[in-house]
């Protein structure tokens, strides 16, 4: 028995050594991508890019925030060439930590201004609008709020959900601070809390909460409900924008950037150019239900047209969404996180 076990251990050590040897060899024409977006969405695009260009892409999937922290920990020694994150906050934090290289202007010069970073260190891949999801059975047309600020009124007491720990909610609070000031934002946060707002884990759990009757309204990103509707047309929830220009309709983005010091800059630029191409953009809007960053792709029937979104969205520069620390301080002051 013990001989077998010892034998097994030795075998394992040999195998481990073998792995070491294999993984130390790295082909030069390989691009390494750290992706905070899920594999099911990213992989089809990677496969098309590989067959189109002959460039190999190694992808490390993970949670956006964890990968952003990892990139900081790795510093100059990172094997990553490109990062693709879920939200502007993560991209901003990497830019601030000086981990992103400047992109060639030709990549983003013809995108609408809401999808560009002013510093040119990263660029939006898709747009994701903040919106409210509601129960058509328990909410009458006249009860639909015009502004996110209305939700502190007595008629919404105990009926609204939000996700204070969620990145896209925090980006929305950052935008609110920028537009209306810290004081008014804190007031709103505290008034919401006093009004019995229910805290959820993330966007999809709020959509489910509305369907299940736990809440009547939820503050979410636009693309979750369409995914539920795609499985069940009768799914008992609907969503709508606040009135045009309301901060509750903020357009956040998923973004991408090139890691500083990469030896594969050319391939990295080519990859980002592909993500912004009509072909990839059409896939993102049709299959993933997010907004394309360009208007020349076929519209997803589940989504409102891009022009309407651009109209409804408040005018916020994406770089303004970088001040997460101030937002977290505020959320802490209101005892929400």
């Amino acid at each position: 028995m013990q001989n077998k076990l010892i034998g097994l251990i030795v075998l394992v050590l040999i195998a481990a050594g073998g792995y070491l040897g294999i993984s130390a060899v790295n082909e030069p024409s390989t691009l390494t991508l750290y992706s905070g977006r899920g594999e099911s969405m990213v992989r089809p695009m990677i496969e098309r890019f590989e067959s189109r260009t002959g460039i190999n892409v190694d992808v490390r999937y993970g949670d956006t925030a964890q990968l952003a922290v990892l990139l900081q920990e790795e510093g100059d020694q990172t094997p990553a060439d490109v990062f693709w994150g879920q939200d502007a906050g993560a991209m901003g934090s990497l830019a601030k930590a000086d981990r992103l290289a400047t992109l060639p202007e030709s990549l983003y010069s013809d995108l609408p201004p809401i999808f560009r970073s002013r510093t040119g260190e990263w660029v939006a891949v898709t747009g994701r609008a903040r919106t409210f999801v509601y129960s058509p059975e328990r909410v009458s047309e006249s009860e639909k709020p015009e502004s996110v600020f209305d939700l502190t009124e007595p008629q919404y007491e105990g009926r609204v959900g939000w996700a204070p720990t969620n990145g896209s909610f925090q980006s929305f609070v950052t935008a609110m601070r920028h537009e209306h000031g810290d004081e008014r934002t804190l007031e709103w946060l505290e008034a919401m809390d006093d009004n019995g707002v229910e805290a959820f884990r993330n966007n999809s759990s709020q959509v489910e909460g509305v369907a299940d009757g736990a809440i009547d309204f939820g503050l979410v990103n636009n693309y979750y409900l369409p995914r539920y509707k795609a499985n069940d047309e009768q799914y008992p929830a609907e969503q709508d924008f606040f009135e045009s220009g309301d901060i509750g309709n903020l357009v956040n983005v998923a973004g991408t950037g090139i890691i500083k010091g990469t030896e594969n800059r050319e391939q990295a630029v080519e990859f980002i150019r592909f993500l912004l191409s009509p072909e990839a953009q059409e896939y993102f809007t049709q299959e993933v239900h997010e907004y394309p960053v360009r208007s020349d792709v076929e519209r997803n029937p589940q989504l409102k047209p891009l022009e309407e979104l651009v109209n409804a969205a408040p005018e916020i520069n994406l770089d303004e969404l970088e001040d997460l620390e101030g937002t977290l301080d505020l959320l802490r002051e209101a005892d929400l996180i």
Partner: peptide
Amino acid sequence: ALMRYEVFSYAIFNQYSGAFDR
């Protein structure tokens, strides 16, 4: 988090995930 019961791990999660801070 899914059960919506707030405990101490919230604080740590938020610091890594919300603030991208280590």
